[in-house]
């Protein structure tokens, strides 16, 4: 059952609400309890909705929920102001997906749970 997990992760999936280490400034999404620097002093932090593609891969054999979207790119996006997210690249031709390309984060339906389950929304990115 995906409902409890989806509900619990809404702040990070809907609003990019992560946290930031007060000691070293590192930003996390999903939020962490302990920073790799050893500090447990972290504050809430909303990540930026703009960034650049740090790396990407093309998915040609996707999981069941995504099979009608193939082929598509999944990118690691370095966000302005710190932090990275890994997400699908949408509204973009595969030829346009390049390392360093500017992207905006967009709110999209990630997948629907079967024929009758909930729609799970979250973030993707698209080349601007």
């Amino acid at each position: 059952m995906i409902v409890p997990r989806h509900y619990k992760e809404m702040p990070q999936r809907y609003r990019l609400q992560g946290n930031r280490c007060k000691a070293c400034g590192k930003v996390f999404l999903p939020p962490r309890l302990v920073c790799p620097c050893g500090s447990e002093d972290l504050e809430d932090y909303s990540l930026s909705w703009k960034g650049k593609i740090l790396s990407y891969t093309i998915i040609r054999t996707p999981p069941t929920q995504f099979k009608y979207q193939k082929p598509y790119a999944v990118a690691i996006v370095e966000l302005e102001g710190g932090g990275t997210v890994q997400c699908q690249v949408t509204d973009t031709s595969l030829e346009e997906v390049e390392i360093g390309k500017e992207v905006e984060i967009v709110f999209r339906k990630i997948f629907s749970e079967g024929e009758a389950g909930i729609h799970c929304y979250g973030y993707k990115c698209r080349v601007v």
């Binding site: 009608y68 979207q69 949408t90 967009v106 999209r108 339906k109 990630i110 929304y121 993707k124």
Partner: peptide, 16 residues
């Protein structure tokens, strides 16, 4: 609409 777009995502972007 793209396959990941619906009334909710369109409403969200306009509202933003």
């Amino acid at each position: 609409p793209n396959q990941d777009e619906d009334t909710v995502t369109i409403a969200y972007q306009a509202a933003k």
